[in-house]
């Protein structure tokens, strides 16, 4: 029987048999998914931990167990701190900026404006483009001297800037592309949440003489809190995951100024063929993501009532 009030008092043999059959069916249904999860999630995770404790193997010297050597290597590498710092700045700017923009977009896309369909479509469009295509489009903006930005600033007599070629601006140029790509996606969730808020709330606030910003701060933002939390977690994961545009725009340069953690993992493993250090770095990322998961399941889900 399906999971209705299962008899717990007495287990006669038939019920026990049925229960066992039930369990068997459950496992059988799960088997295909579990097999793939084992192959591409559980085993690789374990293998990553294991490999991170071994030295880089070469043709002459096979890899040997070397404890935490790879980790020590990493934290003594100044590049490690550059990359971590880059990623922290990347996350620290893209997350709040894209969330704030998403909220503004959602408020506008929800308001009764002329051309609302166009506005919604325009905000959402970057979401369905591949990041690689987005990077190509932005390359056209950033090209020094010839690009859209320099053509525009040139009208005012400003000198051309190599946005992607100098360490001071490159990461910011990358951040702009990410925010452009993400904000419209996050807007969708705010838009959905806004539509569940009863309109009489706004009327009540107006009757009470509350201005727009009071209404936003005192009524809307608290009501949108669960959505914000959900978007925040997504944005956090994306700040690790979204690196495709680096392959087109900067390749992590100049001078590591735009190198992010996942890009560095890729580079170590597939350009420098140094899987030992790549796995150590992967373990650190897994720990961070695991921390995010624990945070989500223990704090966010408890404090904020979903569904």
């Amino acid at each position: 029987m399906p999971e209705t009030g299962a008899p717990t008092r007495v287990l006669d043999p038939i019920a026990r048999l049925q229960r066992r059959r039930h369990a068997l069916y459950g496992w059988m249904l799960l088997a295909p998914a579990l097999t793939l999860l084992t192959l591409f999630a559980f085993l690789p995770t374990a293998a990553t931990f294991w490999a991170s404790l071994h030295s880089r193997g070469t043709a002459r010297r096979p890899s040997v167990f070397n404890g935490l050597e790879n980790y020590l290597d990493l934290i003594h590498d100044p590049n490690f701190w550059t990359v971590v710092g880059n990623n922290l700045l990347y996350a620290g700017v893209t997350i709040p900026l894209s969330i704030a923009l998403a909220l503004v977009m959602a408020l506008w896309a929800d308001a009764r404006l002329p051309l609302r369909g166009f506005v919604r479509g325009a905000y959402f469009t970057p979401t369905i483009l591949p990041m690689i295509a987005a990077a190509n489009l932005w390359l056209f903006f950033y090209t020094p001297g010839l690009g859209v930005i320099d053509s525009f600033t040139g009208l005012f007599g400003l000198p051309p800037v190599n946005w992607l070629g100098q360490p001071q601006t490159a990461l910011w140029a990358i951040i702009v592309v990410t925010v452009w790509k993400e904000a419209g996606f996050f807007m969708i969730f705010y838009l959905a949440a806004l539509q569940t808020i009863p309109p009489d709330l706004k009327e009540a606030a107006q009757v009470e003489g509350a201005g727009r910003f009071t209404y936003l701060r005192r009524v809307l933002l608290p009501l949108l809190m669960p959505t914000t939390a959900f978007i925040f977690i997504n944005a956090l994961i994306n700040s690790v995951k979204l690196i495709d545009h680096l392959f087109i725009l900067t390749k992590g340069g100049p001078d590591n100024a735009t190198k992010l953690v996942l890009y560095w993992i890729w580079e170590m493993a597939f350009s420098y063929f140094d899987p030992a250090r790549a796995t150590a770095l992967t373990v650190l990322v897994l720990l961070v993501l695991g921390g995010v998961a624990v945070f989500q399941f223990t704090i966010v889900e408890k404090r904020i009532h979903y569904r």
């Binding site: 192959l39 999630a41 690789p44 293998a47 990553t48 490999a51 995951k241 996942l262």
Partner: peptide
Amino acid sequence: VLVLLQLFILPEVLIVENYAM
């Protein structure tokens, strides 16, 4: 819970060992 954890442990992060697999 193990399945839910995969919402956070993305295939992208495991590229090294997934490639080996």
